[in-house]
Amino acid sequence: MASWTPLHVVTGKGGTGKTTVAAALAIALAGRGQRVLLCEVEGRQGIAQLFDVPPLPYEERRVSTGLDGGEVFALAIDPEAALLEYLQMFYRLGRAGKALDKFGVIDFATTIAPGVRDVLLTGKVYEAARRTGDTGYDAIVMDAPPTGRITRFLNVNAEVAGLAKVGPVRRQADSIMEMMRAPSTQVHLVSVLEEMPVQETLDGIAELRAANLPVGRIVLNLVRPALLSPATAEALTSGTLDDGAVAAALGRASLPTAAADALVGEGLGHLERLTLQDTQRRIVDAQDTPAVELPALPDGVDLGAVFDLAQRLRDALVRADA
């Protein structure tokens, strides 16, 4: 029945670059003349740090341009502010709203009943996804809680079911669930090509599916590119390329020959890492959720790097859709 703005929920294990990928995706989606909302729900102010702006208030702020001149807006959703706004919007509570705050009910409700808190956080996204006209968006990207908690977070219906059996919060939860399960929503899981994060990602996908939540893509972040040709890899592992051969070559290039030992060691370490990556890549390829890869950037992540990742992400998504 209802129609919503496309929603991209980005989750991932800690340390895999979830916020970076969410920001890159928002930039990638903001094509010419388009408006994209990037929101965070965990109070970490990760978006502000990435875009190098002051901490975000509970207010939609323009933080960046998109890849082709679109606009990216950011919002840090705070459950207490969302509850007050919600009460104001739906009940025009006025004095009672203030009293709720004074008696510590807001704190209580958003702390003791986690389901209620999640309804408020996702409820704000729901509100933005229903907007049309000048304040509406072409896409919404949510920097969501980590993989271990994502299904519980999105599955607000089940969470509040035990607490509120009837009433407006319950109805709100039902509407949010309808949006979360609609084809306009996709949950993307950020991982790195290491054993534990890949396992956690596959577990997360199984949980999302069991809750009827739509899984989008696996984003394999921080992937190491292969820097050695097959011939060099072969020569290195078979030992035909040894310290002596490398030292001689270094000498011809007027470089310190004493580095040969370390270079061979680093080359072997590089191959070992790639082998481990390939093992995990095969595991990811063997399941049916499509994956896109983003490279590790040796100089780390700054705003320029986020745009670089956005371009790669868009190329990968366009290629996959073609």
Partner: peptide, 10 residues
């Protein structure tokens, strides 16, 4: 050539 690649890794 191989040493050049190792230098890239380094």
């Amino acid at each position: 050539v191989a040493t050049g690649e190792l230098l890239t890794v380094h």
